[in-house]
């Protein structure tokens, strides 16, 4: 860990100003990822701006019927919040599938969006990694890639520079719920639809998301539609708890008169960002729920998937997880 300066920010604009004045500074909130990475010499900020004293640990009703989660809400407080548990049980379930109770007590919702990949090579400064050191090469493509991406790995020239995945569970649910990320920067506030927040690696895999360096996440808006009746979050991993996802699926449905009126499917652990395809969800609309139609959606969802050896199993696993998640969400087995 390198030496760094420390600033305790009080006030969002203050924090953003501090950040803008020092481009090698970083915000710290829960610290669960950045301190880990600093101990590995992967992150080397010149300054940490402690934002934990900002008044952002809030849960507010919005006029449109949705809920605004302050960025400093901890993962645990979010998951167990009665309004979230009742209206967005998919989000609660996804959060509680991640990390450990201690980490969920520390990690914040804003920080969860910012967490970096678990790629072994990204974490180990003795090996080349395009995400950590652009241009040094990707060790995972030919290496040990069990936890790596199978979708969205190619840039516009069909070249592959990085096969890292985004490790969050929470973000998979947020993507399915079409959350909106509110950020504040030196030039004011803006809102980023969740689908546009994280990005694919392309030929700039060192950039995880579309947040600008001097912007701060202040809140995450959950739209009114929370799918409390028909949802599922399935996480497959190498042990029962306290492990990152090999594949995870968030599924959310609205059923009307026995037909699917609204569908959301998002995959975690398979790409550089939560993987969602509107065209696949469209397949399900107006259909009567059945294994067949779910299988069709699952196959479409994995279209173009490519394995790299150790992770090739994820393609089939993801399909099966999608079918299971949709089945669970519709309670098809009990219909």
């Amino acid at each position: 860990m390198n030496p760094f300066a420390y600033t305790r920010a009080e006030g969002v604009s203050n924090a953003v100003r501090e950040r803008a004045s020092e481009h090698t500074a970083k915000f710290i909130a829960g610290g669960t990822n950045i301190i880990d990475l600093m101990k590995e010499n992967v992150e080397r900020p010149s300054r940490l701006i402690d934002i934990t004293h900002l008044p952002l640990a809030t849960v507010d009703e919005m006029e449109n019927g949705g809920i605004r989660l302050g960025a400093l809400m901890t993962n645990a407080d979010t998951a167990y919040h009665p309004k979230i548990a009742e209206r967005y049980p998919l989000l609660s379930k996804a959060i509680l599938a991640g990390a450990s109770p201690q980490l969920r007590n520390m990690a914040t919702d804003g920080g969860n969006l910012m967490q970096r990949t678990r790629c072994y090579y990204f974490y180990d400064v003795a090996t080349p990694c395009n995400k950590r050191e652009p241009g040094s090469g990707c060790s995972a493509i030919e290496g040990y890639n069990r936890i790596h991406a199978i979708l969205g790995t190619r840039d516009t020239n069909q070249d592959i520079h990085c096969i890292a995945t985004h490790p969050s569970d929470m973000c998979v649910a947020l993507a399915a719920l079409e959350a909106v990320v509110n950020v504040t920067g030196p030039y004011g506030e803006r809102s980023i639809p969740f689908a546009e927040f994280h990005r694919l690696p392309g030929n700039t895999p060192h950039i995880d998301n579309t947040l600008q360096d001097d912007e701060l996440i202040t809140a995450i808006d959950l739209p009114a539609r929370g799918f409390p009746d028909h949802y599922a979050y399935i996480k497959l991993r190498d042990r029962t708890s306290y492990a990152f996802a090999l594949v995870s699926v968030a599924a959310a449905l609205e059923l009307e008169n026995g037909r699917i009126a609204e569908a959301r499917i998002t995959l975690g652990g398979v790409a550089h960002k939560p993987w969602r395809r509107l065209d696949v969800e469209a397949i399900l609309i107006d259909k009567v729920p059945s294994k067949g139609v779910f299988q069709q959606a699952a196959d479409a969802m994995l279209e173009g998937a490519q394995g790299f050896g150790h992770n090739t199993f994820k393609i089939e696993l993801a399909k099966r997880a999608i079918v299971r998640a949709l089945t669970e969400a519709t309670n098809l087995n009990s219909l």
Binding site: L48, D50, Q102
Partner: peptide
Amino acid sequence: GKRINSCLTLAIM
């Protein structure tokens, strides 16, 4: 009163 991992937070925080 909340359980946390003390290795992942700074004393100063």
